[in-house]
Design a protein around this nucleic acid. Structure first.
Length: 831
DNA sequence: GCAAGGTC
């Protein structure tokens, strides 16, 4: 039997389909799907891994022996050579942690252990135990093994790990490597007819990346976390990719802080081409505004002079009319980065974009979403794809036009790789097939695909120069003359700015001018989409990891909001590392690593040499960091306090801070003077941010509250402040009391202690009737009563519009509603 | 309790 090992299940399916003389039979080994088929009478089986199946970790201890010096020990008790320098101080042999009698405990997070952790031996541990079990089971029976993982460095490493697992149970089966770069019959057939040996050097290059990432990440993360321990769950992480990424964000923030705004003045004139002289009503169809030809006056006196010149003028002369047509080229095919950037502009974060894309891919709606390629391969039948999605009525007519216009020709991007095709739709979907968010992304991908097959858009630009008492004004208008790809791809399209028709030499009405003082703006913060592009430019992360790395920065609270803003903690981490361990804060570390890996792959250096050199460098950086621990600790705790600060405590004057309750995992405001001062304030659900402005009514601090899917609102932290008082609203009669012949009122009110709002019976003690209410929105009673449970219906009026509901959570009507909704939408079904 | 890289 021939065993073929691929990187993912999908690849195992495709290879079986393409090579099998017989139709492959889907089977399972334990819980892992495998595919059996025959080639020239021989039995073949393909198995898909799940990416890396082994994971590096530190061996549990580092031992110093009086004879023989340092030794690493793996979990199995095998001695490993560790590149420990001879002059590394001997650990104090105490029976106390972190140093055990045997040596240094590498699993315990102790500051004193860090210099040893740098040199800790690393072993590879199983990560996907189920898959490894299935793989070994097949390998035992294999006569030969073909490693058919992806054709890149990580693929070689994944394959080499898989082979190591196979070798544990089968030492003799011959092994070869299939190298392919597309799932097409000719490509796969060729790869299996021309098998090559495994490239151990390339796999070593990948393994050195793993080791270096682990060592640097673990040492610096533990350092930052321990230097000012803030309780479990407060990890201050650092890594080869995330830290330089954070540094980019912090650098932009520094530029913004250092920015000195400059004043400038803008003059805008009001014109009306419908009349020969002003003043006119100025709101007719031919009225328009145009700025002075000097877009920005840097000197106020000059702006004043221009204003003085046009003062009293009632007409303007059209001195020039210029029309220019320009072509906007159709966009190029989507790869992962450009998809994330486009989705980010539509309000979908890169991480969310990739989660949705993964699920669309798994359900067969789009092609493989992790690609660098931006050129459709020749093997992709474009017309077939167009036909496949034409069933969506929103695309149908456009698809017809495209197909009727002759052979399809697609735009090409700059990156051409052969691993996967660019991202395109693979099946029709309509808003009824998908949840709203899934469809939004699908729609973007489908429309982008059609746009890449379309012609350019033609924009007609009109530039009209006007003269008002010797002062030049310039009116500009852009109109989409020929939509081209814009007919199907409206993303990022500017609205038409149509100027009224004007002839050169004509006189039109001038309705006066305004002069406005403005200030130059600092460079903008990065949006998540822009940051992904910047990371790609700097070689930070990969198509598969960038989104999750940005998400990680949010998770550890180094950054907040979108556009991305660093927290004080994020800034402090970068400042500390920049000062004492600058290597980790720069993208060059990755560039150097890439270079070293190329050399390992070429056989010029060994993995051990590269990793040892990196260890030495880390050791130096740690040595410069350790003596300044007090300074770093103080900077970090000051930053954390600054991030949490909301204002002064009214009782003791110390800082009021945002805090997380350990018990309920919710946020509240507490005094830094606790336990001496017991002042606390409750907070509503949602994201909370401190704002500098005090409450205009009572002078207490305020917070910005962003509840789920609603607009942010600023509110006073004091529940007793008049601004937080809501009138109690009588919404109707209590149905439970009515049943017992009592006439009791149901009242909507907010509990000042918990801030929760509910409808409660005035006779609650006896009848226990209470209905929960949404946190925000005005409550408006109605005369109606729920047909299912008899509770009074209420209308909630929010910014998103009013909606009527039965407040009873257990109302039998709710279940029916759920049933009616359920199943129709995939998104609802999934969660 | 760490990283970054695959993939679910």
């Amino acid at each position: 039997m021939k065993l073929v090992v691929t990187e993912k299940n999908d690849a195992a399916v495709k290879i079986a389909d393409l090579l099998g003389a017989t139709k492959p039979k889907a089977d399972k080994v334990f819980n892992t799907p495998v595919y059996r088929f025959e080639v020239e009478g021989e039995e073949w089986v393909t198995i898909g891994l799940r990416g890396h199946i082994l994971e590096p970790d530190f061996a549990p201890s580092l031992i110093y022996k009086k004879r023989g010096g340092w030794e690493g020990v793996t979990a199995e008790g095998e001695a490993l050579p560790a590149a420990v320098p001879a002059d590394l101080p001997k650990p104090p042999f105490k029976k106390k942690k972190p140093f055990t009698a045997d040596g240094v405990d590498l699993k315990g997070w102790k500051m004193e252990a860090l210099p040893y952790l740098v040199y800790a031996p690393i072993e590879k541990l199983p990560k996907e135990k189920d898959i490894i079990r299935s793989l070994k089971n097949l390998a035992k029976k294999a006569d030969s093994i073909v490693i058919a993982t992806d054709f890149d460095r990580e693929g070689e490493l994944i394959g080499s790990d898989a082979l190591a697992c196979c070798r544990q149970v089968n030492e003799t089966a011959p092994v070869s490597r299939a190298r392919y770069s597309a799932f097409t019959k000719p490509e796969i057939t060729h790869a299996f007819a021309n098998l090559v040996p495994m490239d151990d050097d390339l796999a070593s290059a990948g393994a050195s990346r793993q080791d270096i990432d682990l060592i640097w990440g673990a040492v610096l993360t533990r350092y930052l976390t321990l230097v000012k321990f803030a309780g479990y769950g407060n990890v201050r992480s650092s890594g080869r990719v995330q830290t330089p990424t954070l540094a980019i964000i912090v650098e932009r923030e520094r530029e913004r802080m250092a920015f000195v705004p400059e004043d400038y003045w803008v003059i805008r004139g009001a014109f009306d081409a419908g009349a020969a002289a002003g003043p006119t009503a100025g709101d007719g169809p031919e009225a328009f505004e145009a700025p002075h030809a000097t877009a920005r006056f840097k000197v106020e006196a000059e702006a004043d002079a221009a204003m003085a010149h046009v003062e009293g003028a009632v007409s303007a002369k059209v001195t020039a009319v210029e029309k220019k047509r320009r072509k906007v080229p159709a966009p190029v095919p989507f790869n992962t980065t450009s998809l994330m950037a486009a989705a980010s502009a539509e309000g979908i974060s890169p991480a969310r974009c990739m989660r949705i894309a993964e699920s669309l891919y798994m359900d067969g709606y789009i092609s493989y979403p992790r690609v660098d390629n931006t050129v459709y391969p020749d093997s992709l039948d474009l017309a077939e794809v167009v036909n496949a999605i034409a069933g969506n009525p929103a695309y149908g007519p456009y698809c017809k036009e495209l197909l009727a216009a002759g052979p399809l020709k697609a735009t090409r991007g700059k990156t051409e790789t052969t691993d996967h095709p660019p991202i395109y739709p693979t099946a029709k979907a309509t808003p009824d097939d998908l949840s709203a968010a899934d469809y939004k992304l699908y729609n973007l991908i489908a429309r982008r695909f059609l746009a890449t097959l379309s012609g350019p858009a033609t924009v007609e630009g009109t530039k009209v120069t006007l003269d008002v008492a010797g002062e030049p004004f310039v009116a500009k208008g852009d109109v989409l003359a020929e939509p081209g790809f814009r007919a199907i791809y409206p993303y990022g399209l500017k609205k038409d700015e149509q100027l009224p028709a004007m002839a050169e030499g004509a006189t039109i009405a001038f309705n006066g001018a305004t002069c406005t003082k403005k200030q130059t703006e600092p460079p903008a913060r990065y949006s998540q989409g822009k940051l992904v592009q910047e990371m790609e430019k700097l070689g930070l992360g990969t198509k598969s990891t960038r989104a999750s790395i940005i998400e990680r920065l949010y998770q550890v609270k180094y950054v907040q909001n979108d556009p991305i803003e660093p927290s004080q903690l994020g800034i402090a981490v970068i400042e500390a590392l920049d000062k004492f361990a600058p290597h980790i804060t720069h993208a060059e570390m990755t560039a150097e690593l890439e270079h070293s890996m190329d050399r390992i792959a070429e056989g010029e250096v060994t993995k051990a040499e590269v990793v040892d050199k990196s260890r030495q460098l880390l050791s130096e950086q740690l040595e410069s960091l350790m003596p300044h621990s007090e300074e770093v600790a103080e900077a970090l705790s000051d930053a954390v306090a600054a991030d949490a600060y909301v204002g002064p405590c009214p009782k003791c004057g110390k800082d009021l801070q945002l805090r997380a309750s350990h018990k309920t995992k919710s946020m509240f405001i507490g005094c830094a003077g606790w336990p001496d001062c017991d002042v606390t304030y409750p907070l509503p659900k949602g994201k909370i941010e401190a704002v500098p402005e005090k409450c205009p009514t009572c002078g207490m601090p305020q917070v910005k509250v962003t509840a789920f899917r609603s607009k942010p609102r600023v509110q006073c932290i004091d529940p007793n402040c008049p601004t937080n008082q809501e009138p109690e609203v009588v919404v109707g009669k209590c149905p439970a009391c009515a049943e017992r012949g009592l006439d009791k009122q149901l009242i909507a009110r907010r509990n000042p202690r918990t801030l929760k709002r509910s409808i409660t019976c005035e006779n609650f003690d006896e009848c226990q009737t209470r209905y929960p209410l949404p946190q925000y929105g005005d409550i408006i009673p109605t005369e109606e009563v729920c047909e299912h449970c008899g509770a009074p219906m209420v209308v909630i009026k929010t910014a998103r519009g009013p909606w009527k509901l039965c407040p009873n959570f257990d109302c039998p009507g709710k279940e029916e509603e759920e049933k009616a909704k359920g199943g129709a939408r995939r998104g609802a079904k999934r969660k």
